[in-house]
Nucleic acid binder design. Structure first.
Length: 264
DNA sequence: GCTGCATGATGAA
DNA sequence: TCATCCTGCAGCA
């Protein structure tokens, strides 16, 4: 499910499978019928991702903007696809691939001014580190303007784009920053560490196709909490100090931390 | 077969 | 802060 690493993988995969090809599009669910009709038969030029947003660019058509939200999913079939589920918002198909999109928060056609507005309200993306504006400095500047807890600030996509609930908990633990620390009071070196750790964790997520933050986790079937330090681990002792893992609500989402390892 | 929950975000109050 | 969007699946009867 979708934090920034998942979105980037979709962009890369869909570019590889669809770019340069004419794509047949439809909306089995019927909620994107006009948009699908507009795109049907067009050539896909490229797919971009920023944070949790996807942008599909076409020859002679508007850009398709997709945001998966909490439930959204793509499914890709390289051979004969099964019939789409009733909730399939958009089907994209070529001679050798079919992609189904279900449950997105956003699936719309946009013009350049609309895309600019979306990008303008997104913070730097660690997966684009060191490209225009996607820097630790931009992240630090955004934090310096906020007095909300750092645990709330880094879920705000205008502060840093692509972090979700798992990366927030794990990133703060790994940099030993207490989630309740006011964003503008996090020491500069810790802000830098948090950015660098986000870059590292998201890149690893893209490479592995899942979120794992422990140093070495065998591939294959493991419980998700077996690959993490604190997320959803209030029933377990802290992996570092053996103390209890605390949990609470922050920015309307559950969060976990270790009061001993993470200092305010 | 049902219930509740989930790695997200918005708009109203 | 809360309701809402609205899919899929784990867990339980």
């Amino acid at each position: 499910m979708p934090e920034g690493h998942t979105i980037r993988r979709y962009a890369d995969r869909h570019r590889k499978v669809l770019a340069g090809k004419e794509v047949a599009t439809s909306s089995p669910q019927g909620r994107f019928t006009a948009g699908a009709a507009r795109l049907n038969g067009r050539e896909l030029l490229d797919v971009d991702a920023h944070g949790k947003h996807l942008f599909y660019r076409w020859h002679r058509a508007e850009t398709l903007h997709v945001h998966l939200g909490l439930y959204g999913k793509f499914r890709l079939f390289r051979s004969e696809p099964p019939p789409p589920t009733p909730g399939t918002r958009l089907a994209l198909s070529t001679a050798d691939a079919t992609i189904y999109l279900a449950g997105p928060t956003v699936c719309e056609l946009i013009v350049p001014s609309q895309e600019e507005a979306i990008l303008a309200r997104l913070g730097p993306d660690p997966l684009k580190a060191d490209t225009a504006g996607n820097t630790a400095e931009a992240f630090a500047a955004n934090l310096s303007r906020r007095r909300i807890p750092i645990g709330a600030a880094i879920l705000d996509q205008s502060v840093i784009a692509g972090i979700g609930n798992i990366y927030r908990a794990e990133g703060l633990f790994l940099t030993r920053v207490h989630p309740k620390t006011p964003a503008n009071e996090v020491p500069p070196e810790k802000v830098g560490e948090l950015w660098d750790k986000s870059v590292e964790l998201l890149k690893r997520g893209v490479a592995e196709g899942r979120i794992a933050t422990l140093p070495r986790v065998p591939l294959g079937k493991t419980e998700e909490t077996d690959r993490l330090y604190v997320y959803n681990r209030e029933r377990f002792p802290c992996r570092v100090c053996g103390g209890p893992i605390s949990t609470g609500e922050m920015a309307a989402r559950s969060i976990w931390w270790c009061d001993t390892c993470q200092s305010a």
